[in-house]
Design a binder for these strands. Sequence first.
DNA 1: ATGACTGCAAAGACTTTGCATCTTT
DNA 2: AAAGATGCAAAGTCTTTGCAGTCAT
Lengths: 142, 142
Amino acid sequence: MEANAKQFKKRNAILACLQHTDLHPSAEMVHEMLREKHPDISLATVYRNLSHFKSQGLIQSLGTVNGIERFDATLSPHVHFICTSCGRILDLPEVELPLSLSRDVERSCGGQVHSCQLTFTGLCRSCRNSCQPGGESRQAIQ
Amino acid sequence: MEANAKQFKKRNAILACLQHTDLHPSAEMVHEMLREKHPDISLATVYRNLSHFKSQGLIQSLGTVNGIERFDATLSPHVHFICTSCGRILDLPEVELPLSLSRDVERSCGGQVHSCQLTFTGLCRSCRNSCQPGGESRQAIQ
DNA sequence: ATGACTGCAAAGACTTTGCATCTTT
DNA sequence: AAAGATGCAAAGTCTTTGCAGTCAT
């Protein structure tokens, strides 16, 4: 750990960044967030490490919003809400995910389920309040 | 209709293609499928019309699989299964989608829900049967 | 020395857009 | 004429990759 501290400094920072935010950031968002403490960090390094963590199962991809991939370090199953206006992705910890369905799915299609994702789409509270179409923070990720 | 038959020939063919398949095709898959009857159809036309239909609410996007956007003309809510091995997207009409959750979501986050998507990921029946890692039809979309 | 991580720039892959052409009203 | 649809090629955007340099074992 100590020994690796320097070698994995950026790698660790990237994972920590994911784990300490609820923004479900994109590669570029991570890059931006880390810039303060690591001014020389490269976007390629972010992409490479996100890919690494994903293959290690340390983070998961939530798919793309407006063509940009978003990531989540919270691995326990939970529900998401994506705002089509501002692009925000919210966790909905209070909404219960019907995990029992996995059995039904396996029975229904004969396959093997690894994960499931329940995502609601719509307008978040703030965009709904200021919702003349094209209103406030359209496209303004985060 | 008659009058528009020619002008909208390709547009109509694209929508019909979506409506008559359960492959949840990508733009390129649509293009490929239409080539037989419309040898001169351009990929740009497919993209433009998919975008058009999407904004009209005639089709929906299922998000991306391996970086490629997939579409569905079935608008009634239903559950999907995505095979991580072959990329196939299957409908699961037998699995019931808990629509009542939309209320919970709106209550929980104060937003307004437009749609929801429940997607299971794993190995489909055939990939699971032939599932030495890297087995059969890895990445072979469709 | 060998293996691993990174920055930079180039390459790649999917999608969108500008422009000229053709069709329909 | 005016509006809309299409093909082609160019441009755009996000992501991946090759290579040289650096650090740790």
